[in-house]
Design a protein around this nucleic acid. Sequence first.
DNA 1: CATGAATGAGATTTCATTCAT
DNA 2: TATGAATGAAATCTCATTCAT
Lengths: 223, 223, 223, 223
Amino acid sequence: MEARVTKPSVKPSTKRRGPALRDPERTRAAILAAATVEFTGRGLDGARVDSIAKRSGVNKRMIYHYFGGKEGLYVEVLETTYAAIRHAEVGLGFDEREPAEGMRELVAFTWGYFIQHPEFLGLLGTENLHKAAYLKKSQRIRDLHSPLIGMIQTLLERGVKQGIFRKGVDPMQLYITIASLGFFYMSNRHTLSTIFGENLSAPDRLEARGQHFAEVVRSYRRP
Amino acid sequence: MEARVTKPSVKPSTKRRGPALRDPERTRAAILAAATVEFTGRGLDGARVDSIAKRSGVNKRMIYHYFGGKEGLYVEVLETTYAAIRHAEVGLGFDEREPAEGMRELVAFTWGYFIQHPEFLGLLGTENLHKAAYLKKSQRIRDLHSPLIGMIQTLLERGVKQGIFRKGVDPMQLYITIASLGFFYMSNRHTLSTIFGENLSAPDRLEARGQHFAEVVRSYRRP
Amino acid sequence: MEARVTKPSVKPSTKRRGPALRDPERTRAAILAAATVEFTGRGLDGARVDSIAKRSGVNKRMIYHYFGGKEGLYVEVLETTYAAIRHAEVGLGFDEREPAEGMRELVAFTWGYFIQHPEFLGLLGTENLHKAAYLKKSQRIRDLHSPLIGMIQTLLERGVKQGIFRKGVDPMQLYITIASLGFFYMSNRHTLSTIFGENLSAPDRLEARGQHFAEVVRSYRRP
Amino acid sequence: MEARVTKPSVKPSTKRRGPALRDPERTRAAILAAATVEFTGRGLDGARVDSIAKRSGVNKRMIYHYFGGKEGLYVEVLETTYAAIRHAEVGLGFDEREPAEGMRELVAFTWGYFIQHPEFLGLLGTENLHKAAYLKKSQRIRDLHSPLIGMIQTLLERGVKQGIFRKGVDPMQLYITIASLGFFYMSNRHTLSTIFGENLSAPDRLEARGQHFAEVVRSYRRP
DNA sequence: CATGAATGAGATTTCATTCAT
DNA sequence: TATGAATGAAATCTCATTCAT
């Protein structure tokens, strides 16, 4: 008896660029991924439904099927993006570290996240332009409370008790300050690079900014 | 070729909402002012040429006459806005003050300018979205070097000599940090207000932020 | 971003003036046919996209979908028209006929084609105005070599060998001469009719011209 | 007494591109010249009033002042151009020459005129597109009867009498044939050059065509 | 006579969305 | 579920012509 080699069940060929046929989950995910890139790069008004359809390899009609329309899709992209950062935040444990170390970790996380997640920066910019109109619309995002304020408060209290942090710091102000220091540089790096005639996106420039960023926060939190 | 007959202009020539009749300077200025509001509030893609024409009380055709098109108009708005902040900057003399006082003035100027000039914030956001594409196009803006870096350097040197500023501070990093602390709060106040369920645009909140802002910079510049 | 609400299409879906519903081929063809008439009658600059849409009973948007724009559509009309005459030319076999008879056939074909295909005359006029700009753009047309020159050469050689044609005739010059004699009369018949105060489009006038045309060529080709 | 040199009364300076100020004749002429170029190169629909104004260095308003509008200007250009060729024609005396020589002169004149007057070719093309609509409108042009038909008739009769021309030739057919042979080549030289991949505007090509042109006519007129 | 800013009408093109299959 | 042709609305832009000076 001859051995019958079973062919390594490849999908029945047929070349498709986009996602699988009749696979709602993948279709949805493909649209969402393409839309995230498009909205990040072009904003809400600049984004094109056609472009998202093409990018995702999915029929344009599916966007309406799954998301109701361009705005619905945008809101869902926003929700997904916010959910992702909230998810990353809850994974942090800097409030349980030694306070000085914890603060460094918070800064490093913020800086790293902004570097690695241009979509978050981009969508935030778009929401700013629209005065947070879509953020306000989304109950889901409004329910996604950031755990950071609480964690920062815990950290501050512990640092004050140890005498290595200054007293009276408002956690929200500190949170906003940390976000500012990371966001502005990354978000404005193209305009800044143009104005200063220097490529601020270069790795060594990012590294230098990270050092400065950390030092500003360290100076502030000292008593 | 069909004749394009213009109807014998019914309206009795009086009552004009907008400005400027046979006054090119005023017409240009009116368009520019209206465009600044529109681009600030809606971004480049969201802005509508019709809306700018209506706002300015000027015939749409004039926009094309004076600025070539929507993009040309946008670039000129950008140039005007940049020229304004550069003009305000050169009027500053904080580098000649007593160093601690000078640094406070720099912070106060930045914070005040951002509060009073939403158009600068808005256009910067739009340029960020477009990766500074239009900023790069404008030789005029690229030639408008900010005097701030030089002034900050002078100030830092004097403060270091007096022993009240830390050594080794990079003027550009400090400049970016100061800009960050002011920009982010104002630019993101709608999203932040939504997230925190608090109106960060309220006067007392702006005041509180100003205090914090100044304190962060003061902490950093101390030796 | 303001929502662009499409009104819930009132019309009960029936009664279509134009052709093609969900039939890309027919839609394309309908647009092309309407465009050919419009460009022939009004030239490239005089043609109106709206008019083409109306003529073809197709939504204006489809013109951009299928042809990219007015110019793209014009080029395709040009290509189609050139392809048609080339197709007709290759169907000819006058070079295999008895030489005198073959030459008569060539003249008759040219004259008949120009009479029956005003779109060819019209588009040629438009291309002349534009210094063949669009013809040059179309690789497809440039690849459609006319078989006529070769066929004329063959015919001339055979006629010379039989001693009934003159020697030393340049096939291209003869081709251009034959085209001239047909083209000019048809193309300029309105101006000529006006100048001479006589309707040169009348059947008997066309017939008379055809006779003259043939006689001019016959006189020339004789040894 | 010192000699007082009178300055060579130059016009009171002031740099003007266009024609003189307050000189109706020159203004009109400048507009007409510019319009001729524009209409020849772009046709009636493609021509731009702005462009004509710029070319002529005259204020756009003057076009309306002197010519009523674009169409009126076009008609006047047409009239001027026709008047010019009619003027050249009446200057000919080929009908008084020895018949064979006269016919050669007629052909040479036609060929030369078409080579040297692209504006005539261009405007004829535009009139063809518009089915002679503007030519018909102009009583002035319709009154400008070409003397050629009569002169050709005289020539033909003399040639027949001398036995060197064929009998029964219709002067109008011959006139049209001669015009065809010259017009088509010049008018279509860009399309023909593209199709044949050869520059038919080159001097030696024009010369070759002239030879062929003359030979076709000579063959035909022989008995 | 001359200027050039201004305008109304309409042209081309773009886009989110829906429909027929 | 999926497709892609089709559409209405509105956006940007162009142009001949007129108006105020």
